[in-house]
């Protein structure tokens, strides 16, 4: 099976372990991810903070190239790129004048035929049903699923999950055998946009997130955004300073968690690249559950 793929700059650089784990899981389950030829940066925060037309044109070029390449579905693992792509698609399909203008700026025709999937939608549609037959281990750990901003907001455009208490990642983690906890900072902003330019704010925002998760006994934070990950992983000194204590709860990508359950080598999943060491091990071997009991119940009811 072939799906369109947009890695984005982070996945090729500072967050390459996210890409590695997405690729490893896809390969294991027989899914081929085809990158958009000659893709460019989506423009991220910088573009939309400074110029609207630029912020729509940079993603639109990628979307147009994907359409030209005959792709119909596009997997965008980076939550920031996913947000920019989805917002661009929404804006252009609801504003004819802007759509024309952007097509003129990029010198290509963007039609708007693509279906854009974030990593969780990709997992829900193409991976979750294959887990039972391929799982080697249960991730028998307490985890806090962290969604951040861009996967759930703006809800009106993304229309993805509940804004205040989303569940999609929790469902996946439970399927992997994890105990996903209820906690207070699921969708609070980690401040990644200011990771470099205003690090003190990041210490406070991310510090609160990591503190609540560890306080409630989470053995790991599970994320689906490279911005959140590199922020929560690399800015730990600023967070520890804010919290006045050292917290060593690791942050892993949801695709790394799936990879571990599938028995994929830790190095192949890029777990060696994290700043906060990921010590999670001793996973329980997975035994496929029988569903016979449920059937007899139904029979009795009949």
């Amino acid at each position: 099976m072939k799906l369109g793929f947009y890695p984005g700059c982070s996945l090729e650089g500072a967050s390459r372990e996210y890409n590695e784990s997405v690729q490893a899981v896809a390969e294991k389950l027989g899914i081929e991810l085809v990158s958009i030829p000659d893709w460019n940066c989506c423009g991220a925060t910088a573009a939309h903070n400074l110029d609207k037309e630029l912020s729509l044109s940079l993603p639109a070029r990628n979307l147009a190239l994907a359409e030209e390449a005959g792709l119909t579905e596009l997997v965008v693992p980076c939550a920031a790129c996913y947000s920019r792509f989805t917002v661009t698609q929404h804006e252009l399909l609801h504003d004819n004048a802007m759509h024309k203008k952007v097509n003129e700026i990029i010198g290509k025709e963007y039609k708007g035929t693509l279906r854009i999937l974030n990593v969780i939608q990709f997992i829900e549609e193409y991976i979750i049903d294959k887990l039972e037959d391929n799982m080697k281990f249960e991730i028998n750990k307490k985890v806090a699923c962290y969604y951040g901003c861009l996967l759930v907001r703006p809800n009106k455009i993304l229309n993805f999950d509940r804004t205040e208490d989303p569940q999609t990642m929790d469902v996946v983690m439970k399927k992997l055998g994890a105990d996903s906890i209820d906690w207070a900072f699921k969708t609070e902003c980690c401040g990644a946009g200011f990771s470099v330019s205003f690090t003190e704010a990041v210490g406070r925002l991310s510090g609160k997130i990591i503190e609540d998760a560890s306080h409630r006994g989470a053995e790991a934070l599970v994320v689906a955004c490279p911005m959140c990950h590199s922020n929560l992983d690399m800015r730990r000194p600023a967070m520890d300073k804010y919290n006045g204590k050292k917290i060593d709860t690791p942050v892993i990508y949801i695709t790394q968690a799936i990879g571990l359950a599938l028995g994929i080598d830790r190095k192949k999943l890029g777990l060696n690249r994290h700043f906060v060491p990921v010590k999670l091990d001793n996973f329980k071997p997975y035994v496929k559950k029988e569903v016979v009991v449920e059937n007899t119940q139904i029979m009795e009811e009949i």
Binding site: T45, C149, R153, P154, T187, C189, G193
Partner: peptide
């Protein structure tokens, strides 16, 4: 300038 575009306000 300090707005992070986290979109909590509109949510």
């Amino acid at each position: 300038w300090f707005c992070l575009t986290c979109e909590m306000c509109i949510a």
